[in-house]
Structures are given as structure tokens and as C-alpha cells.
Simulated assay, not measured.
Amino acid sequence: MKYQALVVDEIDGTFVKTIKTLNRKNLPDNEVLIKVEYSALNYKDALSASGHKGITRNFPHTPGIDAAGEVIESKSDLWKAGDKVIVTSYDFGMNTAGGFGELISVPAEWPVRLPSGWTTRDAMIMGTSGFTAALALYKMEENRQHPDMGPILVTGATGALGTASIALLKKAGYNVIASSGKESAYGDLEVLGADEIISREAVDDQSNKPFLSPKWAGAIDSVGGNTLTTILKAAMANANVAVCGLVASPEFSATVYPFIIKGNNLLGIETATCPRWVREKLWENLSGKWNFSLPQHMIREVGLDQLETEIERMLSGKSFGRVILKHQ
């Protein structure tokens, strides 16, 4: 059985992306074989496709941490041919061949059932970005976050996670402050549900002050670095700050004051090893009470031959909204 995939090769220290026709024997011998209908492009995929050894150790490799499609073979009682499934998280797309291939082979515990009423395209519009936003809100609310506490800040607002977070928070009844360096996108952020939009610089305090005037009751942050430091300085009492990314830097400097004086909480959001029961609950929420939609112009559907361009756009900070991959 042959299939096409975007393959990243390491050649003399340079990482080269090529669309290749592969054979099923190129896949690992796992329990469930799935024909991928849709995948999506995430920042982690862009890093993997560029040779980031912190994401993917061995090459050649097919990235794609998101996939939705149909089971065509199963060695497990959990799944049968014809089942529609979503695959995200675990090691998928990092060191296991991912959704940028038309076929994937994964352990039986990795897929979750496609929610009733959804298409595989719907699932990938949500994808890891929607799931990450949902996990962030879930952990915040487990820690007693509530809309009445005040607005939630979303940084990196024009990225896939940012747009999903804004739409999700608005659906869940929160007021949202969106931070972005792309003034041209402010109108779109308002359409998504942002109640207030501030510049990137407004969340980049350069003073040595331990506190700033309280501005938000929580945050979903994908930027890290000094942005995260500033978020903590300007957080209200008992704020929950969900840490989801490191676009600016994996390092930040902070005092203990926000934690011991204001009772702030720093919540780590890690989707890869999220327990299966939580994973199933969150997909249920995303297809139910938290089901949000993105404007169609914020969704770009591409083929394998367009992925390399989209990867470069994402790495250069020019990507906006959601990029989904349709396999033929």
C-alpha cells in the first residue's frame, strides 16, 4: 500500500522537505492503521520540519501532530475498520510519523472517537490548538477561575492557539483581552470575540517593579519570556496563568511576590501526556458546550505541495489563524 507524505531529511546538516511516495512498510508496526483525511499545521510541526532536535530526534521524519481520518485496519478491540477518529498528542508527529502523511500507524490508545456531528475537517480546525486552549481553560476552572473574576488575557493572539483561545473564552462567557503585534489583524480579533486589544509592547514591561496595576484575572500565554513576567506583574489576585508556549523565549525572570502576596497560580499546559479520560472529556466539551467557530477567512485549506510555504510563514511570524491540510 503506497501513500504520499511530506518527508524532512537531514542532508549534511541541512533539513530538506520533500513530498515522497512511500510504502506502508515505512510506518511503525502499531495496532491501528488510519487513512488521514485532514491534518493541521502547528508551531511544533514547523519546528520539527526545520530540524529542531528538541522536537524530533531522528530524520528522515514526517511531521504533523494532528490527524483525523478513518481506521482501515485494527489489531485492537478498541477500534474497527470504518471508525472515524482524531489522533493528537503522545509522541505523534514528533518521533512517530505524523499527519503530513496520508497513512499513519499508531497504538490503539492514541486515537479518540470523532464526536457525533463533526466532520474530520471540523476536528482539524480545532486540532491541537483548540485542544490546548480547552485544556488551559479546564485547568483554570478546576482552579476556580470564573468569568466574574475579570478579563482573561490571550497573548500571541493571531496564532492558531491565540485565535482558538479567544473564541473559546468568549464562548465560555469570559471577557477577553487580546495582545498582538499585528495591528492589521485587530478587526479580525474583534470578530473572534476580543473585548479589548492591546499591543505586544503593552505586555513587555521593562521596569524592575515587582508589581504593575492589576489588569487581568488570568491569562493563556503562548509567548513566554518577558511577556510571561509582565503577565504575572499585572495579574489580579488569585489569577490563573496558563503557560502554553515559548514563541519569544523558554526563559523568564520573576519574583515570588505574585504567588505569595497575590496568590497567583502558574499552570503548566502539557497536552502530550494528558490522561485519556481528560482528553475524551475535552473533545466532548469542544463538540458541545465549548463548540466555537472560526470565520472562514481565518481558515486556510492547503495541500501537501503548499505546506513548505506555510511552514516558512509560521516561522517568520506571518501566519494567522488556522492552516489545515487536506489529503487527496
Rank of each mutant, 00 (worst) to 15 (best):
F252E: 02
F252D: 00
S253V: 13
S253A: 13
S253C: 04
V256P: 03
Y257C: 05
I260Y: 14
K262T: 00
K262F: 00
G263L: 07
L266P: 02
L267Y: 02
I269K: 08
I269H: 06
E270R: 11
A272K: 10
T273N: 11
T273W: 08
C274L: 12
C274N: 11
R276V: 12
W277A: 14
W277S: 15
V278F: 02
R279G: 03
R279Q: 11
R279W: 07
E280K: 13
L282E: 09
W283V: 08
W283Q: 12
L286E: 07
S287I: 06
K289W: 02
W290I: 04
W290Q: 07
N291S: 13
S293Y: 03
S293F: 03
P295D: 09
P295F: 02
Q296Y: 00
H297D: 15
H297C: 03
H297R: 15
M298C: 08
I299V: 15
I299P: 07
R300E: 14
E301L: 08
V302R: 04
G303I: 03
D305Q: 13
L307G: 08
L307R: 06
E308K: 12
E308M: 09
I311N: 09
E312Y: 07
E312V: 10
L315A: 04
G317E: 08
S319P: 01
S319Y: 00
F320K: 14
G321R: 04
G321H: 01
G321T: 02
R322W: 01
R322T: 03
R322F: 00
V323R: 02
V323D: 01
L325Y: 05
L325A: 06
